[in-house]
């Protein structure tokens, strides 16, 4: 997957509508990145808003790199203790219910149920693992780019991604939903 680097189309060259769409995409991506870090939609929205204000005050251009960096910085400030020391437990994987499997589920219900399982499995990863997975799998960053963005050695990043994938697979397998995904 190619990395999707983006910058807003300039006002002079493109229509307001195009710029509006760019902002939509930028903020949605910022939200997802914040969600990958926090695994909490409310916190993700707060992180994004704080980061936007910070970008505005710093006079930074509306670019993915600046926004992600501001989001990360805020997350590290707010959740430093959790990020460094807490390994979030997944609880009892066997308790994961196969929602929608009861009787004649629709495609949407199955889709939703799968996402719910994935959501719980992701909730069992550490913030830095979710972040590395998100940047790699969703944003298409290379290990070197993630290393630059997060200030870690490339080898550490590769190790975190590898561990995150393995943990995610294990949790999905333990909950018995791997096949349906």
């Amino acid at each position: 997957m190619k990395k999707r680097s983006m910058q807003l189309r300039a006002r002079s060259g493109e229509s307001e509508k195009a710029r509006d769409e760019d902002l939509d995409e930028l903020f949605q991506r910022g939200f997802r990145y914040a969600l990958a870090l926090s695994h909490d939609p409310d916190r993700a929205a707060d992180l994004l808003q704080d980061a936007c204000v910070s970008c505005l005050r710093a006079g930074a251009a509306w670019r993915t790199g600046y926004l992600f960096s501001a989001i990360r910085s805020r997350f590290v400030d707010q959740y430093r203790r959790q990020m460094i020391s807490v390994v979030e437990p997944i609880g009892d994987p066997g308790a994961l219910e196969r929602a929608g499997a009861a009787e004649d589920p629709t495609h949407d219900e199955l889709f939703r149920a799968d996402l719910d399982h994935l959501d719980r499995a992701l909730g069992g990863l550490r913030a830095d693992e979710r972040e590395a997975l998100y940047l790699s799998a969703v944003e298409g960053y290379s290990a070197r780019e993630i290393a630059e963005a997060t200030g870690r050695p490339r080898g550490t990043v590769l190790s975190v991604i590898h561990r995150a994938r393995r943990k995610l697979r294990d949790r999905l397998r333990d909950s018995g939903i791997e096949e349906t995904l």
Partner: peptide
Amino acid sequence: LDGHLRRYYGSQQLDATTLERLKQLA
């Protein structure tokens, strides 16, 4: 696995009210 992650994160959306407020801010 990566495909499922993309699908999962792709399904996560910032709510419309917050999005509008941020666009106004921008």
